[in-house]
């Protein structure tokens, strides 16, 4: 308690000092020194490619010769005359809004479970992390088709319980679920971030509340969860962004065709087919910018909403 009171007192002094300090010339540059690598990076490695692609999105650039300006035609085609594009939007939205919450719930649950003081937890944590280590390697593609194929282990197991399932990989409507499960299976990265977040919570918070006689649930609801909200926000946003851009999973099921019957035609997969398969880089670029806007809007919404539930210590 004493520390806190002292800190608050200091705080007032600090604010005054800061005001004085920042008024001096040059002091305002310090933040930019910290930011310098990032700033240079953005300008050198991102800015030019990003603006190039924005420009290309208004052209019919096809890798040959100079791009021709065609205004908004690509954007109009997309929404008015391209059923496959609308299908890819549908598949992607479904994937994002089902797979991400499932994955996060799974990751948080296991992080909480594996954060308790039971013997052998380090080993368990590492074992649970193995699936996430292989990423989207070729071996995974073969494995997943083996597991979710017509005679795969999943169907064999379900068969024991009397469920007669078709091939998950080969049936529209099922295929995307095989990919959602793949995402959930590779829940390791959000789990680790949750774990790291849990460890960040100062232990004296718990000690204090134990003295107050708070039970485990109460501690979870009043300490763990609020303290974890910045991390939860981070995980939610990052998983959302990466799921909107999901690309490799579709290769796992359909070698990049997006089949069966376009049921796994993810947005970036379709973008890629247009850009690198058909050489319609102009069209692919406009798809990229629409996706950028979609992701941007959802991220902005998440940040807006976060004012209500994310707890920062300041």
């Amino acid at each position: 308690m004493l520390h806190k009171a002292q800190a608050i007192l200091y705080l007032k002094g600090v604010r005054m000092m800061r005001r004085v300090l920042t008024r001096r010339r040059g002091e305002g540059l310090i933040p930019y020194l910290f930011l310098a690598p990032w700033l240079i990076g953005v300008l050198a490695f991102s800015a030019i490619p990003i603006f190039t692609s924005l420009y290309l999105s208004f052209t019919n650039y096809n890798f040959i010769g100079t791009p021709n300006w065609i205004g908004l035609r690509n954007y109009l085609t997309m929404f008015t005359d391209d059923p496959q594009y609308l299908q890819s939007l549908k598949v992607t939205f479904m994937y994002v809004f089902v797979a991400v919450p499932l994955e996060l719930a799974f990751a948080l649950g296991l992080a909480l479970l594996l954060n308790r003081g039971i013997g052998g937890l380090g080993t368990y944590r590492s074992l649970y992390y193995i699936p996430s280590l292989i990423g989207g390697s070729v071996a995974i593609a073969i494995l997943w088709r083996q597991v979710f194929g017509a005679e795969g282990i999943v169907n064999q197991t379900l068969g024991v319980f009397g469920f007669d399932m078709p091939s998950w990989i080969g049936t529209p409507g099922y295929a995307v679920w095989a990919l959602i499960l793949l995402k959930v299976w590779q829940f390791g990265s959000p789990m680790i971030i949750f774990l790291a977040g849990l460890k960040q919570i100062p232990s004296d918070f718990y000690e204090a509340s134990s003295l107050d006689g708070a039970g485990r649930w109460k501690q979870f609801a009043h300490i763990t969860l609020p303290m974890l909200t910045p991390i939860l926000l981070f995980n939610a946003i990052m998983q959302m962004i990466s799921s909107f851009q999901a690309f490799t999973p579709a290769y796992i099921i359909s070698e990049g065709t997006g089949g069966p019957v376009n049921s796994t035609l993810f947005y970036t997969l379709y973008l890629y087919q247009n850009g690198f398969g058909n050489f319609q880089m102009g069209y692919a670029s406009s798809m990229a910018w629409v996706l950028f806007i979609i992701i941007g809007v959802f991220t902005w919404l998440a940040f807006k909403a976060s004012d209500r539930w994310v707890h920062y210590d300041n």
């Binding site: 096809n62 089949g259 069966p260 019957v261 247009n274 398969g277 050489f279």
Partner: peptide, 22 residues
């Protein structure tokens, strides 16, 4: 021509749509 890759893929997709009775 350019774009043929996607048209070739359409043969697959539409044949599947028939095969699945869609």
């Amino acid at each position: 021509p350019a774009g043929s890759t996607s048209v070739q893929k359409l043969v697959l997709t539409e044949n599947q749509a028939v095969a699945f009775g869609q």
